[in-house]
Design a protein around this nucleic acid. Structure first.
Lengths: 124, 124
DNA sequence: GTACTGTTATATTATATATATAACAGATAT
DNA sequence: ATATCTGTTATATATATAATATAACAGTAC
C-alpha cells in the first residue's frame, strides 16, 4: 500500500491521504482487519506532519472506514451502513451529473463511464 | 431561478452558488442565452457580499458555463468541450465509487442511482 | 451626465490548513 | 519497572482561503 502526496495539488494533504486509503480498500490492496501504519511512521514516510496524518485517520474513522485499537493502532473496519452510504453518494453524484447534463453528456455515456471505473477498481 | 444559500453549511458560499446555477442549467430553469442577475443584485437578494457572487461567476466562466457581456452582464453560454468534461467527470467519479465499493454498493446499484438522478434533472 | 455592467485594488476579519513541540493514557515487550 | 509503541490532546505559529467592506475603473446604454 503505497501512498503518494501531490505537494503541488490544491487539494489538502489530509484529503489526498484519505482518498488514497479509500482507493486502497476499493482495490483490495488493504482489507478488513489490516492495520495502517502509525501516524508517526506514515508521516515520516510521506514527509508530512504527524497531525496531518492524524486528521486523515480521524476522518476515516468518522466516515466508517477504520477503527482505532489501542494495541494495533488504526485497523481497517468498514461500517456497513449502506443506506447512509447511498444517500451520501447520491448527494455527491447530483453535482457531478448536473455538470454532465450541461455539457451534453448523456445518461448512456454516464453508464459507460461508471462501468469503466468499476472495472478499474476490480482489476486493482 | 431561485437561489438559496445554506449559511450553516461547511461548503463555501461561492461553491454553493456555482452549484445551484449549474443545477438551474441542468434542469432547464435557465438556458443558453439567458442572463444571470448582476453580481450586485444577486448579492443583495441572497444577503451576501458582491465579491462572493463575483467569485462564483468568475469560476462559472472559467469552467465554461457562462460568458460575460459588457452590455448584458453574465449570460449562460456553455463551452461544449465534451472530452474535457468527461475527463473531469471521471476523476470526480473515481473517489465517489471507490467509497461505494468499500461500502459494498454494487455496480448495478450504482447504475440505478445514476438513472434516478438523470430522471430528477430531466423532470426539472 | 447618470446608471448600469464586470473587474480590480486594498484592507480587515475569521476560518482552515500545515507545521512544531510537548505531554498524556493505555498497551506491550523486555 | 523501564522503555517503547499506540492514538489523542494541548498550545503555538505561519500561511492560505473565505467573506466582508469601501472604493474606484472601463466599458455600455439611455
Amino acid at each position: 500500500m503505497y501512498v503518494k502526496i501531490d505537494f503541488s495539488s490544491d487539494e489538502a494533504f489530509y484529503i489526498q491521504l484519505r482518498n488514497q486509503i479509500i482507493y486502497g480498500i476499493a482495490t483490495s490492496k488493504i482489507q478488513e482487519g489490516d492495520n495502517l501504519p502509525s501516524v508517526r511512521e506514515l508521516a515520516e514516510n510521506i514527509g508530512i506532519n504527524m497531525h496531518t496524518v492524524n486528521k486523515a485517520y480521524a476522518i476515516l474513522k468518522q466516515e466508517g472506514y477504520i477503527k482505532l485499537d489501542r494495541r494495533k493502532g488504526a485497523v481497517i473496519a468498514i461500517d456497513m451502513n449502506k443506506l447512509q452510504a447511498i444517500e451520501e453518494m447520491k448527494e455527491n453524484l447530483r453535482v457531478i451529473f448536473a455538470k454532465a447534463i450541461c455539457k451534453n453528456i448523456s445518461c448512456e455515456e454516464a453508464h459507460k463511464i461508471v462501468d469503466q471505473i468499476f472495472d478499474e477498481f476490480e482489476r486493482g
